[in-house]
Simulated assay, not measured.
Amino acid sequence: MSVPSSALVFSTVVTRLRAAGCVFAEDEARLLLSSAHSPVELAAMVDRRVAGLPLEHVVGWAEFAGLRIAVDPGVFVPRRRTEFLVERAVALTRPGAVVVDLCCGSGALGAALAAAVAGVELYSADVDPAAVRCARRNVAAERVFEGDLYEPLPAGLTGRVDVLLANVPYVPSGEIGLLPVEAREYEARVALDGGTDGLDVLRRVTAGASRWLAPGGRMLFETSERQTPQAVETVARGGLVPSVAVSEELYATVVTGTRPLG
């Protein structure tokens, strides 16, 4: 049950949010009012939002690809632009496919793909314990593993993976300080920092991809427009055939690497 709304309460919340710099203050106010169970809880939620906590961490969930994804404090919030990555993966995934979601964070990508394609055999992994705990609330808990990239995955997946989702961190280390406060202060750095040029984690994922992918299997990841040429070269060096797709609407770039048949 949400807090009974009134024009005065709504206006007060909107005023506080707007003063804190929230661009979509009215929309956020409606969400906070519908999520709080008491006036005391509402006040605490507004205080946390005004202090800079991401809205998704305040309410405990994020809307992603039509799903409500649980998002715990400190866990990377799935971005709307990443829905393009899911869209590309859905188009390439057959029913019953073996799917791995590396750097899974909240598990949003895997959850969205599994919701869109029947019978997907999904495995997820992340190095951050908080992310793993969160992902286990969004996808099958027994198939969410904690560890560095491929290391915790069952050995039996070697050479069987049809689709490898890898939403790797790709912000260059020196640019972390330029991110919005919501990201740099309230999301785990390990989910953001891609090393000196932003491609360190991608290089490691790509280096191992051919071993885990089935023949004809595909690895998909998001990157920035600026990093795309280097990302494509990295995919090719890993023995995969690269292709690039761009969504102007979502300002998103997805690179796919396909393991050759034979």
Rank of each mutant, 00 (worst) to 15 (best):
R143D: 03
R143M: 03
V144L: 14
V144Q: 05
V144Y: 09
E146K: 10
E146G: 07
G147E: 05
D148F: 12
D148C: 09
D148Y: 13
Y150F: 14
Y150C: 04
E151P: 04
E151Q: 10
P152W: 02
L153V: 02
L153K: 01
L153Y: 02
L153Q: 02
A155E: 14
G156Q: 13
L157H: 11
L157A: 09
L157F: 13
L157N: 06
L157T: 12
L157G: 06
R160P: 07
D162Y: 04
D162R: 09
V163P: 01
V163D: 02
L164I: 07
L164R: 03
L165K: 00
A166G: 10
N167M: 09
V168Y: 03
V168R: 00
V168I: 15
P169E: 15
P169L: 15
P169W: 05
P169Q: 15
V171R: 01
P172R: 01
P172C: 04
S173G: 14
G174V: 08
G177C: 13
L178M: 13
L178R: 12
L179D: 12
P180E: 02
P180W: 05
V181A: 14
V181P: 05
V181G: 10
V181Y: 10
A183R: 07
R184D: 09
E185V: 14
E185A: 10
E185D: 12
Y186C: 07
E187A: 07
A188P: 09
A188K: 09
A188W: 07
A188R: 11
R189I: 11
V190R: 13
V190L: 12
V190P: 08
A191S: 13
L192R: 04
D193H: 04
G194Q: 01
G194D: 01
G194E: 00
G194Y: 00
T196M: 08
T196F: 06
T196P: 05
D197E: 13
D197N: 10
L199W: 01
L199I: 00
L199F: 00
D200S: 13
V201M: 05
L202M: 12
R203G: 03
R203L: 02
R204I: 11
R204P: 03
R204W: 07
V205F: 06
V205T: 10
V205W: 01
T206P: 06
T206Y: 06
T206K: 08
G208D: 07
G208P: 05
A209N: 05
A209E: 02
A209R: 00
S210D: 12
R211D: 14
W212G: 00
W212S: 01
L213R: 00
A214Q: 13
A214I: 14
A214R: 15
P215C: 12
P215S: 08
P215Q: 07
G216T: 11
G216Q: 09
G216M: 12
G216P: 10
G216S: 11
G217V: 06
R218P: 08
M219V: 15
M219K: 10
M219S: 09
M219I: 13
